[in-house]
Amino acid sequence: MLISVIIPTLNEEERIGSLLKFLTSHPLKNRFEVIVVDGESEDKTAVIARTFDVPVYTSDPCSRALQMNKGAKEAKGDVLYFVHADVQLVPSFVNDIIEAVSKGFESGCYRFKFDNPSNPLLHINGFFTRFPFKWCRGGDQTLFITKEAFSRIDGFDERFVIMEDYNLLDRLGQEGLSFKVIAKSIKVSARKYETNSYLKVQAANLKAMKMYKKGESPDLIKKFYTSALD
C-alpha cells in the first residue's frame, strides 16, 4: 500500500522545509510519495521545496481545493494524505494510516494540539478533537482517504474557496463512508492566535461555520473570514 502525501502551499517558506525534511528522512519513506502543489507563492516556498527533490506543481488560480485535487490527479498512491505545510506529523503516520485502512476505514484524520499554546484556552480546542463531532474537524488535522473513496465523491468541490474540508466531510457522510479519528495528536501552528485574540478567532470560525450551514456562497464566506482576521 502506497500513501501519497499531498501538501498544498502558499507562502510557507518558513515552514515547508521542516515538514519536507521530516518526510524525506523518514525511515519508511519507501512507503509513501510526497507531492507539493504551490499556489504561486510570492516567497521562496517552491524553491525550497524543490531542493528536497520532490515534485512541485503549480496551481493557478490559488485555491486549496483546486491544489489538493491537482495533487490527487498526480498521485500514484492507494491512499491520499492531505497535509498542511505548517503541521508536525507523528512519526508513526505511515503505519497508523495503513492500519486504519486495513481495518476497513476509508477515511480519517488525527487529533491535534497546538505547537505553541501561549493561551491555555487553546488546550480546549485540542481536547475536543478526540470526539467524532464534525465541528471539531478541519484540514489542520490532516486527512487521509482512499483514492477509490476520493474518486467516488469526486474529490474536493472546487467552488469552495474556503470550508472545502467541511464540505468534503459532509459528502463523506452522505455516501456512508467510514471515518476514523486516530488517537494520536499532530501539532498545528498557533500563528493565527498569535496575531489575533483567542475570542476573535473563535468568533470568526463560528460565524463562518454558520454561513456555511446556511448555504451562503464560499466567496462570501471567504470575504468575511479574511476581513475578520489579521
Results as ranks from 00 to 15, higher is better:
residue 4 S to H: 07
residue 5 V to I: 12
residue 5 V to H: 07
residue 6 I to D: 08
residue 8 P to M: 07
residue 9 T to N: 02
residue 10 L to N: 10
residue 12 E to A: 12
residue 16 I to Y: 05
residue 16 I to G: 08
residue 18 S to Y: 11
residue 26 H to Y: 09
residue 27 P to K: 10
residue 31 R to L: 10
residue 32 F to D: 11
residue 33 E to N: 14
residue 34 V to E: 07
residue 36 V to M: 06
residue 38 D to C: 09
residue 42 E to W: 06
residue 44 K to W: 07
residue 45 T to G: 12
residue 53 D to C: 14
residue 54 V to L: 09
residue 57 Y to M: 13
residue 57 Y to G: 08
residue 57 Y to C: 03
residue 61 P to D: 12
residue 62 C to D: 09
residue 63 S to Q: 03
residue 64 R to I: 15
residue 65 A to T: 05
residue 66 L to P: 05
residue 66 L to Q: 11
residue 67 Q to A: 15
residue 69 N to Q: 08
residue 70 K to A: 11
residue 76 K to S: 15
residue 79 V to C: 05
residue 80 L to H: 07
residue 80 L to D: 03
residue 84 H to S: 13
residue 87 V to K: 00
residue 87 V to R: 04
residue 89 L to K: 07
residue 92 S to R: 04
residue 100 A to S: 13
residue 107 S to P: 01
residue 109 C to T: 14
residue 112 F to H: 12
residue 112 F to C: 14
residue 116 N to Y: 09
residue 117 P to C: 10
residue 120 P to V: 10
residue 120 P to C: 05
residue 120 P to W: 07
residue 122 L to C: 00
residue 123 H to K: 13
residue 124 I to Q: 07
residue 124 I to D: 10
residue 125 N to W: 07
residue 128 F to S: 05
residue 137 R to I: 06
residue 137 R to M: 15
residue 139 G to K: 00
residue 140 D to T: 11
residue 142 T to E: 05
residue 147 K to H: 04
residue 148 E to M: 01
residue 152 R to I: 02
residue 154 D to Q: 12
residue 155 G to C: 07
residue 156 F to L: 03
residue 156 F to D: 09
residue 161 V to L: 04
residue 163 M to E: 10
residue 164 E to R: 02
residue 167 N to G: 14
residue 170 D to A: 03
residue 170 D to C: 04
residue 171 R to H: 11
residue 172 L to G: 02
residue 174 Q to V: 10
residue 177 L to H: 05
residue 180 K to R: 15
residue 181 V to A: 09
residue 182 I to A: 03
residue 186 I to M: 07
residue 186 I to V: 12
residue 190 A to V: 01
residue 196 N to K: 08
residue 200 K to S: 12
residue 202 Q to K: 15
residue 203 A to Y: 03
residue 203 A to S: 14
residue 205 N to G: 06
residue 210 K to I: 15
residue 212 Y to S: 02
residue 212 Y to C: 06
residue 212 Y to G: 00
residue 213 K to I: 13
residue 219 D to A: 15
residue 220 L to A: 15
residue 220 L to H: 13
residue 221 I to P: 04
residue 222 K to V: 02
residue 224 F to A: 04
residue 225 Y to R: 06
residue 226 T to K: 08
residue 228 A to I: 07
residue 230 D to C: 10
